[in-house]
Amino acid sequence: MNNGRYSHTATPITRRIQQLGIAAGVLLCASAQAQESIARAYILQYHHISDETPRSTSTAPDLFRQHMNFIAENGYQVLPLAEIIRTLQEGGGLPEKTVALTFDDGYKSIYETAYPLLKERGYPFTIFLNPDALDNHRSTHITWEQAREMGKHGGVVANHGLGHIHMVEVKPSEDASAWRARMTQNIEQAEKRIEEETGASLKLLAYPYGEYDASLQKLVSSLGYVGLGQHSGPIGPDSDWTSLPRFPASNAYSSVPQLKEKLSTLPLPAQMLSPQNILIADNNPPQLRFSTELNAKVTCYGSGQGLLDSAVDNNEVTVVGVAPFKGRRFRYNCTAPAGGGLFYWRSFPWINPAIPED
């Protein structure tokens, strides 16, 4: 997906300001100030912090340092993810520029490369890991001892399930009840091991591969967990606590200008009307329909397809891809101008389980 596509300088709102002059600019400034007061936070998602690992899931050490410098130099406050979520759930306020740092899988480069910089700056961070990787002493991953050391300096451990499996997949021999029992065991056993080794149970679950569906969301909610995906967007008080978005921060998606753009967004208020599930089969490309009360133009883009076909009827937006998607996972990213250099942003993820993992 092209996360660098949305140019603030070319928006209709900007052109309108130029046409109407200072008076309109004053009004827009007041509107922007109101929008900036919306409680929100940005969760950044990292995997490897290395030059020697797959580019799609890696952030170069120099780029990671640039990210941390940008955050520090532009007034962003890095807070613990669990604290941010709890505050938003309870309707509390957050600093205007709030960021959470997360790392998936527990790779050793987190400890070797990211941790020293985060410790130096006093930044809290969350590592989502599958405990069996540590229990099996994989050389590519951190150790429990390292996890406990990082815990003394703001690095907490949270749940990424056992085995890094595709949780949405149902085995041929399983019915719905058997699948639920297997997923419950997977999640709860991982949480138990984390608590045994670190002494803490945050009940935060990052879905492996960012894959979830309506059934998994229902299960996660019933178990008392907050679920996090790998689709993009800021979070706010009205976020779905079983599918929180995170902005990817790997080399491919997060140059410093791209990071700046991501951290200039607001949660796009939208109620998904159809389909009821993000798993697709014959409905490729899927048709998305959602409602929003924004008095602004909503524009949507698809992974690898660019601008998507869309129609607006009153407060309902209908979006569909221009051709079938070939990947197992893809996104519809929808934005709308909010004024003052801000954009509303929401990513709608899709999963085609018929396509095997690359």
Rank of each mutant, 00 (worst) to 15 (best):
P267T: 10
L268Y: 06
L268M: 10
L268P: 00
L268A: 02
P269G: 08
P269S: 10
P269C: 09
A270Q: 08
A270Y: 11
Q271H: 14
Q271M: 11
Q271W: 10
M272N: 13
L273Q: 15
S274R: 12
S274H: 10
P275K: 04
Q276Y: 13
N277E: 10
N277M: 10
I278Y: 06
L279F: 05
L279I: 10
L279P: 03
I280F: 00
I280V: 14
I280R: 04
I280E: 04
A281W: 03
A281T: 15
A281C: 10
N283H: 09
N283E: 12
N283Y: 04
N284K: 06
N284T: 13
N284E: 08
P285K: 02
P285C: 04
P285E: 07
P286L: 02
Q287W: 00
Q287S: 11
Q287L: 05
L288D: 14
L288Y: 02
R289G: 02
R289H: 07
F290T: 07
F290M: 05
F290V: 03
F290D: 04
F290C: 02
S291D: 11
S291A: 13
T292R: 05
T292N: 01
T292A: 04
E293I: 05
E293Y: 03
L294C: 12
L294W: 01
L294D: 06
N295P: 07
N295E: 13
N295Q: 12
A296S: 13
A296R: 05
K297P: 07
K297M: 15
K297W: 09
V298T: 08
V298D: 00
V298N: 01
T299G: 01
T299K: 05
T299W: 04
C300V: 11
C300E: 03
C300P: 04
C300S: 06
Y301K: 05
G302M: 02
G302P: 03
G302L: 02
G302D: 02
G302V: 12
G302N: 04
S303K: 04
S303F: 12
S303W: 12
G304E: 08
G304H: 08
G304F: 06
G304I: 03
Q305T: 15
Q305I: 15
Q305S: 09
L307K: 10
L307H: 05
L307F: 05
L308D: 08
L308G: 14
D309M: 12
S310Q: 14
A311K: 15
A311S: 15
D313M: 08
D313W: 00
N314Y: 01
N314R: 11
N315D: 12
E316Y: 07
E316W: 03
V317I: 14
V317W: 04
T318K: 15
T318I: 00
V319L: 04
V319W: 00
V319F: 01
V320E: 07
V320P: 03
V320H: 06
G321A: 02
G321N: 01
V322Q: 01
V322H: 01
A323Y: 11
A323H: 14
